[in-house]
Design a protein around this nucleic acid. Sequence first.
DNA 1: TATTGTTATACTCTATAACTATA
DNA 2: TATAGTTATAGAGTATAACAATA
Lengths: 153, 153
Amino acid sequence: MATRKPSPDTAIEQVDTSYLESLVGYNARRATLVIVDAFLRNMAVYGLRPVDFSVLSLIAHNPGITSRQLCTTLNIQPPNLVGMINQLQRRELITRRPHPHDGRAMGLHLTAAGKKMVKQAEVTASELEEATTARLTVAERKMLMQLLRKIYI
Amino acid sequence: MATRKPSPDTAIEQVDTSYLESLVGYNARRATLVIVDAFLRNMAVYGLRPVDFSVLSLIAHNPGITSRQLCTTLNIQPPNLVGMINQLQRRELITRRPHPHDGRAMGLHLTAAGKKMVKQAEVTASELEEATTARLTVAERKMLMQLLRKIYI
DNA sequence: TATTGTTATACTCTATAACTATA
DNA sequence: TATAGTTATAGAGTATAACAATA
């Protein structure tokens, strides 16, 4: 029979994480890290990090969106978006056009190459969703997202 | 009637995030950020970040745990833990004692002050759990953690 | 030969202050 | 006066290489 009560200066064989595992935040963070890791690996072929994918996808579904709107939607500080947008433009995935009503702003649009990449990347993202939630049923996956939204919305 | 189909160079009034919201990763990350933000605010009185709290709590429930075990459990790189441990020791919340079986390692233990702080901090963490999951029933909260664990374990 | 703890270091991510041009 | 976009910069977080002491 193994010793149960840890006496002073006893080595820990198995780490007890039961307390941390009783916290939603701990579980949410661990799950997020696993998904982000898988995302980084699978999106590397496109040269896209999660944030780049989010930006491109939002431009795809919102042609003409401004940098400011991207910042608000994705919780990015404006100075931190500048470099990303410049890089996406240098890679000829997006273009900047004058905003129709606001001379200060620029509307962001995908190039043909950008559209093609987003299309492919979204397919990869879907496959990734399947893989990371492989142990969940369709109903459970839906339920999980509903519960998560109840926290952040 | 409002214009429905966005023509070239049309301003985006309302950003359509429906695609991103269909991804588990996006929802998990957003929820995690909300919880971490709340955690940072509420734990500031103790001078503890989430990682400091996790470290102290693991030492509390696993007296004698080594740095290496903390790193493995929390997915921290050993060099990045050194500073945290030093700081917690300087704050007289933990002590390092020789490991009983391994001369290379040090067992980590809470001081009386450390035990007192962990006790209080865990109460605050519980209150925080209540607040961040206020829109979830007890059953939903349990379900959420089970579903998250199915992703990361 | 492998592992624990450590130092030094670099790279990424995120945040703030301040500027310009337009509103 | 306020906002969009930008520059410069600082701080936090995270990663790798290499070392001494011990297994």
